[in-house]
Design a protein around this nucleic acid. Sequence first.
RNA 1: GGUCUCGUAGCUCAGCUGGAUAGAGCAACUGCCUUCUAAGCAGUAGGUCUUUGGUUCGAAUCCAAACGGGAUCACCA
Length: 596
Amino acid sequence: MQLQNAISQSISQALNALFEITVDASQIALQPTRKEFAGSFTFVTFPYTKQVGKGPEQIGQALGEYLKQHAKEVKNFNVVKGFLNLEVEEQEWLRLFRGIMTDANYGHGEPSGRNVMVEYSSPNTNKPLHLGHLRNNFLGYSVSEILKANGHKVMKVNLVNDRGIHICKSMLAYEKLGNGETPESSGMKGDHLVGKYYVLFDKAYKEQIDELVAQGMDKEEAKKKAPWMLEAQDMLLKWEQGDEHVVNLWKTMNSWVYSGFDQTYRTIGVDFDKFYYESETYTLGKERVEEGLQKEVFFKKDNGSVWVDLTDEGLDEKLLLRADGTSVYITQDLGTAELKYNDFPYDQSLYVVADEQNYHFQVLKATLKKLGKPYADGIYHLSYGMVDLPSGKMKSREGTVVDADELVQEMVDTARQQTEELGKIEGFTPEQAKELYHTLAMGALKYFLLKVDPKKRMLFNPQESIDFRGNTGPFVQYTHARISAILRKAGEMGIKYDPAAFESFDNLHEVEQEVLTQLVNFPAVVKEAGNLYAPSVIANYAYELAKAYNRFYQEISIFNETDEQARSFRIALSAMVARFVRESMKLLGIEVPERM
RNA sequence: GGUCUCGUAGCUCAGCUGGAUAGAGCAACUGCCUUCUAAGCAGUAGGUCUUUGGUUCGAAUCCAAACGGGAUCACCA
């Protein structure tokens, strides 16, 4: 970073000295030099030909000569067409490297003073988590870590969707068919037990519809008139009236689900600073509607329903309150936005929610803007695509889902199998082995879901289990394990590798240079990932870093090196790679093993 | 139909605010373990960057249109 800035400065000066044109250093973009050419940074001269009145190669030559003389960082240069490739003095690289070694905070932004709230997970309490939720959870957790690394204060929240007709469905089915079954009596995890009754409801409901249709009823009509649907609606009404029996059932079943979720959250390694429950927030928002009516940014229709007109924003009119005065989905969100802001005055509020709700969040933001809320601008919908199966979209009700707990278990099994096949399990206690399998399984899974741009839909094929080779989590983890072995050995041999141990080393090998370039990039990568809310940027970086290191590892021997300074440098380089692999993976919520 | 979004190798995906001959992994094929962990490394092969126009010295990248996939447009959540 500083290196590039220094060179940009010099180029700015050179342009001024040679051609008498003024270009601010911040406007001078350097790009990494392509592998085929000598050099580290490339400056493109085409854009300046008009201003200067000379050809691109001429400019490149003149600039190169000037920089070689005047810029201490520049060792040499070459010009290919309009591309000025600059070779950097090795001492500069090594100076940077020593700086990184002694800066424990390297790559982490200074405290920004900005507050960011990240809402993610936000499950329904009527069914267990599935693969789609995993993408959500990993994204939310990782983005939070990345934002923290950028110096922001982050609050992770989970808005639990614990009320509504869908919850009543599983409650009703349980009452009808449950026979007092409990997680203890059935041996099922609580969320799975409740999910079972949700599916049972749907099955019975469909049969009832078919029956009514067979009796000659219209299908839409049948959907509304099916007996269990009517009963579920009745149950919802009772719940809202505080009916003791219904509320108790609700509490019981919810507690089962929560203990199930807790277990899953622990397993997958995500957590939250605060929980909101929709059962406590669903009445909020009506004051906001009232406020909007007073400010005359909302309007009332003849039947008493309240609307906001967003046609100027390219959206439609949107209902905010029903004619009977009850709230709809968006009403609640208006309320919770205010509640969240009061709890934690944020500069930004991220909602990690699937892209099927893109429209909803546009409306939410536009509506809060109409209300003149100061926090409206900070609202950002971090939208992500569905995870598709080869058979198409996942649907909980139809049972065509990849269950999160099952998937994790399968990954653990695969990890065990692979490790055993490779014979890498010697010297592990059973506990250590178990821990390793879990680390690898979660590494593979998280990396798989996070390396892809969130916006894109992605395909998951359960038949082809997630890979442990190539561009994967375990590949990166493996690199860390390898380095750990080296560091252990260096420790046993008593080899020092602090900056003083390679003080006069200055003979960088090409592959070492590449590793170093990657290390130097880390802060820029963290920043970019933070600006874009993109864990994929980090994942790709971790992969590139690991790849560069593996090449170095293969080509250059460390312990057979007779030059002590060179040997120390290589160990130090390894140690730094391990450190930034670990830090990158931490930003993805992935742990790295010492041995594997 | 309106709006949003995606379209890059057989498959899954990278390609930052436009730059050189478009990159990885998987799958296929070739080499490399008596030397720091082969979950690795090196290599071969695989492309009309959906199409057509535009802007530019220069376009996978920006703009427009078309085509194709997906989402959404409820007094559901």
